[in-house]
Computed example of a mutant assay.
Amino acid sequence: MMATGAAPQPFMEPYARHVLVCVGQFCSPNRDGRAIYSRLAALLQREGLLFGPTRVKRSEAPCLGVCAGGVVVAVYPEGVWYAGVTMELLERIVVEHLKQGRVIEEAVFHRLSPNTR
């Protein structure tokens, strides 16, 4: 029971994965990160990943702390980080990784240590 005048508790639909896209100007001075982030929404919709048990959340980040390697995209809960993400690679990330569950190994530059999960 909430106290009178208390703010309601937030609610979030369940989701399977969370994708973070670096939109900072050090990684992508031509604002490629923003274009990748925008395209991600359309690809998630096309692949049926916006609702239901396979739902994927997306967030833009002003800096993911890498500041090199082109557009950086991180996928959680796996903790897989991709560098140099282009529109073509983004398409593969959505279809192969987010939808089919296969990490695109040749594009991975970092993984969350299994000891930290």
Rank of each mutant, 00 (worst) to 15 (best):
E96N: 15
P8C: 04
R92A: 11
C67W: 03
R102F: 07
V56N: 00
A61D: 01
I93E: 05
V95N: 02
R31A: 12
K99A: 10
V85K: 02
L44Q: 07
A7G: 08
Y37N: 09
S28E: 08
V21I: 15
Y15S: 09
G69C: 06
P62G: 02
L44P: 03
F11P: 00
G24V: 06
E78Y: 01
F51G: 01
V73P: 00
Q9C: 09
A107E: 13
P14M: 07
F109C: 08
L64Y: 03
A7S: 14
G79P: 04
G65D: 01
A3F: 09
V19C: 07
H97T: 04
F26L: 14
A7C: 07
N30W: 07
V73Q: 00
H110Q: 15
A35G: 07
T116N: 10
S28C: 15
M12S: 14
H97W: 06
S38A: 13
N30S: 14
M2N: 12
W81R: 07
P10R: 09
E96P: 05
R111M: 08
G24W: 05
V73T: 01
Q9T: 11
F51M: 10
F11K: 13
A41E: 14
A16S: 14
P114Q: 08
A7R: 15
F26S: 14
G48C: 08
S38Q: 14
P10Q: 06
L89W: 00
F51N: 09
P14F: 05
I93Y: 04
R92I: 09
R92Y: 01
E13Q: 11
L40W: 04
R102K: 14
V75Q: 07
F51R: 10
G79K: 02
R46T: 13
S59W: 02
F26I: 12
P10I: 09
V108R: 01
T54I: 05
T86A: 07
P14V: 04
G65R: 02
A74M: 05
Y37S: 11
